[in-house]
Design a protein around this nucleic acid. Structure first.
Lengths: 154, 154
DNA sequence: ATTACGTGAAACCATTGTAGTTACATTAGA
DNA sequence: TCTAATGTAACTACAATGGTTTCACGTAAT
């Protein structure tokens, strides 16, 4: 299995919000860029709102960023959309046999490795901001974007 | 979503195979330690066999390790059981709108980050062998196991 | 040879997460 | 008031996972 597309879609949404004139990035408009249904966009925008990354109010077109993109790491977005569920990235097999020496210790033995592997992955996401991604896009386009898209410390 | 339990179960299987007398670790016996169905064990053992980590033959009880546990990294096991599917750890939203500057570049912009995040996670798995896990188990048990369980370079 | 045991594999099912879709109440603003 | 947009619930389709049954086949012991 792999990590939900909510994650890249959320990044897509944030970038669109930042480059759009206020009130123009409706869920319909965003959906046509992402190529999905507006309700999917509203669901994800809602998660971003609950995480404090954007502010969206019913009836008002277009959500508003609550932070500049340069202050939003990919890790924040990833967590906002619950990209990896409760139990962590790695699933464990439940209730192995406590009467077997392997069964009763395997989870304790593997857990630290799972934790550090997941953290290693998340640390990469933490080192990049959404502004970095937007900057890469503008480079790919050969377009000059405002200052706040300047790449950070990569 | 999270990574399949096939991964920890496969590690469990390998350790059981190594500490069992030859021919005693049947899929039934392993299943009772893992607490699942014997067919699930055979399915996973089959994947380990196709990856060259064990050798199992129909009619012969218990698979045989083809390498010492100290020579099997967790990454090898993880790949053997196809813990992360074809598309990689991170899913991308398909066919975003090519008429939008964000839509037509978002994948190219995010892909390198996805790649390196996944690789960071996998590198942790590569640094640990199944023998290390077995060694941790024996430590938790306070049991002394044969030399080939000695922890490697952690 | 027959029998018992174990593996390999196919087939089926229930569960879960994801994403798409429809429908509708609610809110802001012209 | 009317329009447009959001928030949310509900339903659907689909895929991956893991459990289960069933059966053919291989091995080994009697």
């Amino acid at each position: 299995m792999n990590i939900s597309t909510r994650f890249p879609v959320a990044v897509h949404i944030l970038i669109l919000l930042s480059i759009s004139q206020p009130g123009t990035a409706t869920s319909d408009m965003i959906a046509s860029s992402v190529n999905t249904n507006p309700v999917v966009i509203r669901r994800i925008t809602g998660m971003l709102g609950r995480a404090g990354l954007v502010e969206a109010r019913a009836g008002i077109a277009g959500a508003r960023l609550k932070k500049p993109l340069a202050d939003i790491t990919l890790l924040e977005v990833y967590k906002a959309v619950n990209a990896v569920g409760e139990g962590g990235l790695f699933a464990v097999h439940e209730s192995p046999n406590p009467n077997c020496e392997v069964g009763r210790n395997i989870q304790a033995a593997m857990n630290p490795i799972f934790i550090s592997a997941q953290r290693a992955m998340e640390q990469i996401l933490e080192q990049t901001t959404v502004a970095d991604v937007a900057g890469d896009i503008s480079q790919l386009e050969g377009i000059v974007l405002p200052d706040y898209f300047a790449p950070t410390n990569r």
